[in-house]
């Protein structure tokens, strides 16, 4: 069974859909635990610091983005914890997933910015290529 589940989210609707699938996976075993990981993108750091009063406020803003996902978990009584990483989303998720040895990684198929996806390639694609564990991409 999948006991250690990593759910990578970016705060969009797609992450809520991914969260629903993670719930289904977690329901299979009483011991499963979901780790919700969110990457604060280096490229947004200047903008986010400029537009927030303090580091506390910034942390709160980021956690607010994850609230719908956490609520999804709480509604099904799935034990979960939140991890906020700093870096470039694709590589940061891969590094974390490989270091912590998860049984499976769940990720939404499309992030917030379709223009970026066109130019830079999608985060989920990079993750599939380089993560060492099975990856579930949720459409």
């Amino acid at each position: 069974m999948y006991n250690r589940i990593l759910l990578a989210v970016d705060g969009s609707d797609h992450s809520v859909r991914a969260a629903n699938e993670a719930v289904k996976l977690a329901a299979g075993s009483a011991e499963s635990q979901v780790t919700i990981v969110f990457v604060a993108d280096y490229d947004n750091a200047k903008n986010e610091v400029l537009h927030s009063g303090s580091s506390l406020e910034l942390d709160l803003q980021r956690r607010k983005k994850l609230q719908p996902v956490e609520e999804t978990m709480a509604a099904e009584n799935i034990p979960c914890k939140v991890e906020i990483l700093h870096g470039t989303p694709g590589p940061a998720i891969v590094e974390y997933a490989n270091k912590e040895k998860f049984d499976i990684l769940v990720i939404g198929s499309r992030g917030l910015n379709s223009l970026q996806e066109m130019v830079l390639g999608s985060v989920s694609h990079k993750v599939v290529k380089r993560a060492n564990c099975p990856v579930l991409i949720v459409k």
């Binding site: 280096y42 750091a45 986010e48 610091v49 400029l50 580091s55 700093h86």
Partner: peptide
Amino acid sequence: LTANIVDDMTG
């Protein structure tokens, strides 16, 4: 301002 940005990026 830059120190705050580096603080945030490096956690």
